[in-house]
Amino acid sequence: MTVDIKEVSNSNENQITELILNIQKNEFNISISIEDQPDLLAIEDFYISNGGNFFGAFKDDELVGTIALVKFDNNSGAIRKMFVKKEFRGKEFNIAQNLFDVLIDYCHRNGIDNVFLGTVSVLKAAQRFYERNGFEIIEKNQLPDKFPVMGSDDVFFSIKLN
């Protein structure tokens, strides 16, 4: 199975929104709406224009995974919107790892040395994934002042890349 990872933009908003909201609401019962995530309706303004990026994993023309980076300081960024469709998770497909590797490569190429993220405590597999990739859990008060905290996030991670 071939999965292509490529940069996405506003033209992919419908696919991205459908994928992410379905996973958040229907799979993990997280009470969140599109109104709580206006960044999904302004991908280019929110992510790309400030030096971050948004990537999608596509099997044929179907979006099966996403990952994004918000650059919030000269050399710091926040991982956002890492989601993979349930039937495409796991080592067999390796989509999450490939998305993550593309994003970390983007960070290296663009001088982003400090990467942070917030997630929800119910997403245990995601937390294990980040720890396997070298992230360490930090307290919320250890986040940089400019870190864009999402209201539902209650577990935070960081990694220094250089």
Rank of each mutant, 00 (worst) to 15 (best):
S11R: 14
E13N: 06
E13F: 05
E13T: 05
Q15I: 04
Q24M: 15
Q24I: 13
E27I: 03
F28L: 02
N29L: 11
I32K: 02
D36W: 12
D36N: 15
D39K: 09
L40H: 10
A42H: 05
E44K: 13
D45L: 14
Y47G: 04
S49T: 11
F54V: 05
F54A: 07
G56H: 03
D61F: 02
G65Q: 06
I67D: 02
A68Y: 06
N75I: 03
N75H: 10
N75K: 05
G77V: 00
I79H: 02
R80A: 05
R80K: 02
K81M: 10
F88P: 03
F88N: 00
G90Q: 14
E92H: 05
N98T: 13
D101S: 12
L103S: 05
Y106Q: 03
H108Q: 13
R109V: 12
G111L: 03
G111C: 00
I112W: 01
D113M: 10
N114V: 02
T119H: 01
T119A: 00
S121L: 11
V122K: 07
F129W: 08
R132F: 09
F135I: 01
F135D: 05
N141R: 01
P144H: 08
D145F: 08
K146C: 07
K146P: 08
F147L: 04
M150E: 09
